[in-house]
Nucleic acid binder design. Structure first.
Lengths: 333, 333
DNA sequence: TTGTACGCGTTATCAC
DNA sequence: GTGATAACGCGTACAA
């Protein structure tokens, strides 16, 4: 079943069939209808491979993420796929894990599939050492590379980021202004967004004239139990804190569990702020005040920008989306 | 940059290049090395479209799911993508939502992309009325259709399911054996797996000679707050229950929050069992006893079966995976 | 072991 | 407005 069959049955040439297929106006209404009717009768579907061969595109973009089962990334993928499809694009998903070599391998695999663009979802794709990002810059010569919540400067590379620094700064400032002085900062990784968040924490302290103490800045695996156990151990070490700012809701949940374990009253004696405003923030008692990073906006903006790139419009190489602090019951103000 | 360029530079014919590319043994070691060297120098990558055109496959399978941001499905997609890629297949993701017409539309869209198979992830794809599933049966004539946690009988359709009925039956039996009589059953949908779970609940009651009461079987949106509010309202209506069996962890979390709101002690005065053993089960205090449905096994089995289908091996049309009950602190035994 | 020639199903460029 | 025909890049009989 191909374009020849249709042309035969309709008594026209394949060129005409192709024209009908692609909405070319140079076809008489009569012919168009006839062809369409035949297509319908024969249940004809154009072959995407042949089309791809001619046009060198299959209207498909590659989405890379480290781990699509992470709640934040799962959400991102959902919104990305949705808006891509709304624009007529398919998504090839590719979960890479955290190893640089694997990421590079999958990246070039995706390129070899001739996707029209690659979206790097999550802040785990920009490495500290510039040379480790070279493969991305190089690829961008051939196809647009979109970063969701990551930033890399380069031609044909476009970033949409959440203003993590301001978000954390604002949150920590509110903690300070509601009387907290000993604010623990819990983070899980030193990615692009990880670094920004930490900056926000530091800036808030600085602005309010509170000295920075390294012992109050702690790294912790993105894991409820690890977070709880870390706090328990800090407690045993006699390190005092009356508030916990976290870089992820799971760490905040761990903080809530720590408080329960030690019978500390929230928010009277301990305030807690989560990050990402995920389902997890709603599971605890009390529910967790959390920074909403506007994943949906982040993703739709990314896709809109990409569509702009495709159509040759001049688009910004970097777009920043503001976050919201969702007030719940682990904070006082 | 195509196969002709390579053949030119290497001084051989395109047939030889193609042979090297496809690991055909009928090439002298010398020639092979020469060709490989040239490919490397030129940075040649075979064009997947042209290849697809001839072979009518791009080594790509379509994954459909209703909502990839749902924690359970996000996990499933992660494992599916991973094992497909391990087998050299790409995944095109397609989130359909819950509307039948949309599902059908995307299904045929995926078919028109000539994917090698379609995986329907989650139990939301098998409808009650047989005629609503006709499009799947029809499609299965052209390409294998794999159901993850759903069952549909038909040629070229393969199901991998969790034994939901036994799982719930076992869980409810344990509740009964630890002294509960008034066991509320909370479920969110009447899908294939939803019906099975309910069957398990009924069977456990029957086996233990406990009369079934319709008022103890309640539907509830898959949502923490909705679940909590439903239980609060039952409480107000004077409907007594000393245990809650749920079809999803989020409902169980809602039950925990209900208990907290009413100052009911868990598990002394209320036992709770979740389903899917997701992150959510670990967020509450106490942590929730939950049925682990072995998503990973479900997904890798699905992919293994699919690979069997591709290679013409005789594979079972239905595989059942046993679940595990993960004991935590919302139950007594 | 290697090369020639054709088919795969489109789109696009001509000429009419 | 329509029809021939040449790409597009690869796999593969078949011939040598």
């Amino acid at each position: 079943m191909n374009i020849y069959d249709v042309s035969q049955h309709a008594g026209v040439s394949i060129a005409t069939v192709s024209r009908v297929l692609n909405g070319n106006p140079n076809v008489s209404e009569k012919t168009r209808e006839k062809v369409l009717k035949v297509m319908d009768e024969l249940g004809y579907t154009p072959n995407v491979f042949a089309r791809g061969l001619g046009l060198d595109t299959m209207h498909t973009v590659g989405i890379m993420c480290s781990d699509s089962s992470d709640p934040y990334l799962a959400n991102a993928i959902y919104y990305l796929e949705r808006s891509l499809r709304a624009n007529g694009y398919d998504s090839i998903l590719c979960c890479t894990g955290y190893d640089l070599e694997v990421k590079q391998k999958y990246f070039s695999l995706l390129r070899s599939k001739r996707v029209d663009a690659i979206i790097l979802a999550g802040s785990k794709f920009v490495e500290m050492r510039a040379k480790d990002n070279a493969y991305i810059l190089e690829a961008a010569a051939d196809l647009p590379v979109m970063l969701v919540n990551g930033y890399l400067e380069g031609d044909n590379i476009f970033s949409t980021v959440c203003d993590d620094k301001s978000a954390v700064e604002q949150a920590v400032s509110l903690l300070i202004e509601s009387g907290h002085r000993d604010i623990l900062y819990l983070y899980s990784s030193y990615s692009y967004s990880g670094v920004n968040k930490l900056e926000g924490y530091k800036k808030a302290l600085r602005t309010h004239g509170i000295p920075l103490r390294q012992e109050m800045i702690r790294q912790c695996p993105k894991d409820v139990e690890a977070s709880r156990d870390l706090l328990l151990s800090l407690d045993r070490q006699g390190i005092f804190f009356d508030a916990v700012m976290t870089s992820d809701d799971s760490l905040a949940v761990g903080a809530v569990k720590y408080a329960h374990a030690r019978d500390i009253s929230i928010p009277d004696n301990l305030s807690i702020i989560g990050y990402n405003n995920s389902l997890l923030a709603l599971c605890t008692d009390p529910e967790i005040t959390s920074v909403d990073t506007k994943v949906e906006a982040l993703c739709t903006t990314t896709v809109n920008t990409l569509m702009g790139v495709f159509s040759g419009v001049n688009v910004p190489s970097r777009t920043t989306i503001a976050s919201d602090l969702i007030k719940r019951n682990t904070t006082k103000w």
